[in-house]
Design a protein around this nucleic acid. Structure first.
Length: 580
RNA sequence: GCUUAUGUGGCGCAGCAGGUAGCGCACAGCCUUGGUAAGGCUGAGGUCAUGGGUUCGAAUCCCAUCAUAAGCUCCA
């Protein structure tokens, strides 16, 4: 058996051991399901309340069961027999009820006193689990069968590996992830803050964070300008009728802040910018010769995310999209989407991102009333995106039920430090909004026809992008982005004037520099500057003053290099231009 | 939103068989004028998230609210 398959089977057998341990420690508990997952397994229980203090006790019980050398005995039963066996287990009964009539039902015994409805396979005896390394990770709630309409059960997550070192490595990675967490680094580096009184999910961008955002928006707007995008600025709210026209009010009201009424008019904070951009297009006559028209905006949006879903600047209620809408003819779709994908790849290369995946987000075919438009158009759009992805050679996977209500998408998915999968960039093909807003252009036969709209965001939201950037770089941002580019330290008070001269020269070159002239030891000042993650530290003492030089310490190195100020300046500007 | 935890000076934490708060960092002043990851001394700073309750007495126990975290659900 392949190692992966073996580990999966062991994990699954361990989940039965966990269930048996819980049943014996907490009588009255009802069992639900317990599969193997990445890094271990879990099991869901009803009528169970435990806290981390109980973990050791449960682990001991599990070891006790393992050490009893109990057989995993498989038996085949009829539906009636199964219902009888699990008469006292409502969740199992529900599963049995839903099994197809011709399905072979198997039950696995662990010892004599615990049995579980299960397809298997399992290890033959618990003695094989002796070398298996496991540790209870956490307890949390999870809805029965993944639906919020159902009861919330108690889920126990356990890390589990065949190999002891794999468990150690898993725990180490978890510790490391905490250090990379953008919320910690963002606080340490003065990027952003939150405050109860301001409101949850509403990030405050501090001076360092704003410098970073400005560098990012300048970067992306310059790129867009060179690709023929036109930037606009539109209000963060709009009349409710705008969203009734677009369909957002009908489809996404629950995710929007509630409407505001005054003078018989109703306004809403906008959750996205599409409707505003539709209106810009609609306000002018367009010839087929003018298309594509690419309208872009660095735009503030507001979404009422469930309180439990908020996460630092990864998911907020107020955020800034790097959004654009491309209005084009049907024959231009392919080139335009290809252009966006190229832009995404180009940007990710500039930032050195490697851990991402393209996802073709399709509609849920079993639940089509969620979506606008007819089947034919959807098939066509989905096929078009698939073809573009295939020909671009990008690695991608397909996901049903992830489309927007107006069309399929290509999303770029990344994983955060703590393991959330989120969308960073998105490209969406849309035939619906042009229809709803009655957008037109005049074709070569003087007919008025509908354009197609491509929605796209490269940074997705600046906020989420910064979160990912911080986690990928562990806060060691490249020099061109780092809020602080050069830190100057004086050795003694005699060097303050010289330090100020150097600082002024760097300021003239628009370098983000700060000087530490405090009455502290050089060692202390170095330490502070390193913790600030300054890419360059200049130590200025009597020696440098006499030679008109600087002693440069580069981030990541403990060595100091002495050079003339001019050389340093030249090298620094080159580094910034190269965006490394 | 749901389940479970957590909430102590700016930050990180200790104190919690109930007797009205401590440490480190940061901050301020002074001494030291120092050469590559923490020099020394002194000091200021907290109604222990908020509101109720139990008690002679609550940071410590109970309830509610708010916020945060993990997972679930959601994510245009």
């Amino acid at each position: 058996m392949e190692e992966n398959e073996k580990q999966k089977m062991y994990r699954h057998s361990m989940s039965h051991v966990l269930a048996k341990a819980i049943k014996s420690l907490y009588p009255g508990v009802k069992v639900a399901i317990g599969p193997a997952i990445e890094n271990g397994f879990y099991y869901d229980f009803d009528n169970l309340t435990i806290s981390p203090e109980d973990f050791a006790k449960i682990e001991d019980k599990m070891r006790e069961i393992i050490n009893k050398n109990e057989d995993f005995k498989r038996i085949v039963v009829s539906k009636q027999e199964a219902q009888k066996l699990f008469a006292d287990e409502p969740y199992k009964l529900e599963l049995i009820r839903d099994l197809p009539a011709n399905e072979t039902i198997t039950v696995y015994y662990t010892g004599e006193d615990f049995y579980d409805l299960c397809r298997g396979p399992h290890v033959e005896n618990t003695k094989f689990l002796r070398g298996f390394s496991f540790k209870i990770n956490r307890v949390s709630g999870a809805y029965w069968r993944g639906s919020e309409k159902n009861k919330m059960l108690t889920r126990i997550y356990v890390y589990g590996f065949l190999n002891k070192d794999d468990l150690k490595e898993c725990l180490r990675l978890e510790e490391e992830a905490k250090e990379r967490d953008h919320r910690k680094i963002g606080k340490d580096l003065g990027i952003f803050m939150m405050h109860d009184l301001i409101g949850k999910g509403l990030p405050i961008w501090l001076p360092n964070g704003f410098l970073l955002r400005r560098a990012l928006s300048d970067y992306i707007m310059d790129k867009e300008l060179s690709l023929g995008y036109q930037h606009v600025m539109t209000p963060s709210l709009g009349s409710i009728n705008l969203y009734k026209t677009s369909g957002h009010w009908e489809h996404y009201q629950e995710d929007m802040f509630p409407a505001m009424e005054r003078e018989n008019e109703t306004y809403v904070l906008r959750p996205m910018n599409c409707p505003h951009h539709m209106m810009i297009y609609k306000s002018f006559m367009h010839s087929y010769k003018d298309l594509p028209i690419r309208i872009a905006e660095i735009a503030n949006d507001f979404r009422f995310e469930g309180s439990g879903n908020l996460c630092g600047i990864e998911r907020t209620r107020a955020f800034t999209q790097n959004d654009a809408h491309i209005f084009c003819r049907p024959d231009q779709i392919k080139d335009e989407i290809q252009g966006v994908i190229n832009l995404i790849l180009d940007v990710y290369k500039d930032f050195g991102f490697k851990n991402y995946a393209f996802r073709l987000s399709l509609r849920d075919k079993k639940n089509t009333e969620k979506y606008f438009g007819n089947d034919e158009l959807w098939e066509k759009s989905e096929a078009a995106l698939r073809e573009i992805l295939k020909s671009s050679g990008a690695n991608y996977y397909e996901a049903e039920g992830e489309a927007a209500f107006y069309g399929p998408k290509i999303d770029v998915q990344v994983k955060s430090a703590i393991g959330h999968e989120v969308t960073l960039s998105t490209v969406q093909l849309d035939y619906q909004l042009p229809e709803r807003f009655e957008l037109e252009y005049v074709d070569e036969h003087d007919n008025r026809v509908r354009p197609v709209v491509i929605h796209r965001a490269i940074f997705g939201s600046l906020d989420r992008f910064v979160a990912f950037l911080i986690e990928e770089t562990k806060g060691n941002l490249p020099v061109w982005l780092n809020p602080l580019q050069v830190k100057i330290l004086t050795v003694s008070e005699k060097n303050i004037d010289y330090a100020r001269q150097i600082e002024a020269k760097l300021h003239l070159n628009k370098i983000r520099v700060s000087a530490d002239i405090s009455n502290e030891s050089v060692g202390k000042k170095i330490r502070s500057a390193v913790l600030e993650k300054s890419p360059f530290i200049l130590v200025l003492g009597d020696k440098e003053m006499a030679e008109n030089s600087v002693a440069v310490r580069t981030r990541g190195s403990k060595d100091t290099v002495s050079m003339s100020y001019k050389d340093f300046e030249k090298q620094l500007l080159e580094t910034i231009n190269k965006k490394v």
